[in-house]
């Protein structure tokens, strides 16, 4: 199985093809609805971001609190398409990878190709299982948002499936069932 490290390098993203299984190691950032809204407004306002998006991977995830003795609680992916309206600007700011569940809009698929990025799926509804791949959790920003705060997660061999690759190919294709 293909192993990958963060921050992502363009030559490595080039190798990724839809349907491929990948194990990701390194730092990723949780980012969901309300944090997206704030990041979006921060970029628009020309202010400094709480973390540098350049070559980074974000994870659409709002984990449960960690029980005593554990690093993190349950931490599976949330629906990616809800973030689509913010994604273009984040990619423009240097974001290279996104992890979530479900399909992306045509516009975002084009943007992924344009900005040479990648969209991954991970096991949906498997937050307990995925917590096993997290080695560290550090709060970064917007703690008032509770589960929607930004956390830096250090992951090891986090299981992913390439869903939209650098060529703009979509694992879901044109199918609408």
């Amino acid at each position: 199985m293909l192993k990958l490290n963060t921050p992502l390098k363009e030559e490595e993203i080039l190798k990724l093809k839809i349907g491929q299984y990948v194990l990701l190691t390194g730092k990723i950032y949780t980012l969901r609805d309300q944090a997206h809204k704030r990041i979006f407004e921060t970029i628009k306002g020309g202010e400094a971001l709480p973390f540098d998006l350049k070559n980074q991977v974000i994870y659409y995830c709002g984990p449960t609190p960690h029980p005593k003795g554990k690093i993190i609680g349950s931490c599976g992916p949330t629906t990616a398409s809800r973030m689509d309206k913010f994604t273009n600007l984040l990619l423009k700011a240097g974001l290279k990878g996104m992890i979530g569940k479900g399909r992306r809009s045509e516009e975002i698929i084009k943007a992924i190709k344009k900005y040479k990025a990648v969209y991954f799926l991970t096991y949906a509804g498997c937050g307990a299982l995925l917590s096993k791949y997290v080695r560290k959790k550090i709060p970064i920003a917007y703690l008032d948002l509770g589960p929607e705060a930004i956390y830096q997660l250090e992951v090891r061999d986090f299981p992913l499936i390439v869903a939209v690759d650098i060529e703009g190919r979509d694992i879901y294709g044109k199918k609408r069932w």
Binding site: S74, G125, G127, A128
Partner: peptide, 24 residues
């Protein structure tokens, strides 16, 4: 593969008292 992961997830959740899904 995904179904196996879902079943494994349920087993970890039960054993460790973790939420099955982060969306509780």
């Amino acid at each position: 593969d995904i179904l196996s992961a879902i079943i494994k997830n349920a087993s970890i959740a039960k054993k460790e008292g973790l939420a099955i899904c982060q969306d509780t």
